[in-house]
Design a binder for these strands. Sequence first.
DNA 1: AAAATACACAACCGCATTATA
DNA 2: TTATAATGCGGTTGTGTATTT
Length: 268
Amino acid sequence: MGRAPCCDKTKVKRGPWSPEEDNILKNFLEKNGTGGNWIALPQKAGLRRCGKSCRLRWLNYLRPDIKHGGFTEEEDNIILNLYNQIGSRWSVIAANLQGRTDNDVKNYWNTKLKKKLLASQNTNIISTNNNINSSDFNHINYSRNYYGTLDYSNTFTSHMDPNLTNYSNNCDQYPHLPSLVEIQENDATIQSSESCQILQKYATLKGSDTYPSTFLQNPNNIGYNYYDDILENGFDFQENAIGGANPNSSYYNNILEIDDQLFKGFEN
DNA sequence: AAAATACACAACCGCATTATA
DNA sequence: TTATAATGCGGTTGTGTATTT
């Protein structure tokens, strides 16, 4: 049993776009916008294409502010730096490059930049200001389920349980992360626990340079400060919207990583 | 010159996430 | 709060072109 397809593939055209199709889509979007619904758009515009295909064609190719090819040395460095820090989150990397799409950056990485990096490593001439070494390069984060702090300092990170093969909740294997409130209310056993010490360490950093000021729900929703809330009240991923409303969501199984250690939050 | 191979990048697929009712 | 639909994302494949054999 696979997922239901988004459109009837026997009725839509696939493969490369013709200049005529490009014109129809471009004219329609410039006149009407998306109308907030890509799925319904092709019919309105008179295109025999899947809505997802239209969206992709517009975002990756037809949009007026897009640059193609000719990546500069500066862009190379930005991509290398960000890849080193956050891995293959192409949309985040592309957002840091004016006029570049995630698809473009991904293709560029896979066909050129990866080789360039390996070649420079082999000849030992890698630029020192990239701060890249081979072990960093191989690091694995948890792909799209990884959310970092604004400065990607990796001190305080929420991500999906790496041991999950499906989305049943098995995060019980990780120790509970107490809140400061809980710590104050409880006995010496909790207060001497390792997780408590870690939490208090960050509490004492408050206001200092190393204290992450912003904890992100996702890279495109900047500005929500979870940090204080998590310290004070605990890591409640549902209520903090790190979890969503849907208990089947992978968010529901989120665990929190602090100082390379994994903890589960509390549920309510 | 033709076939085989490599390369670049456009496009698709399916699932995670988000929005909405 | 929950179910469902829409969107976003990253891995992968497909297709046209360039280069090598």
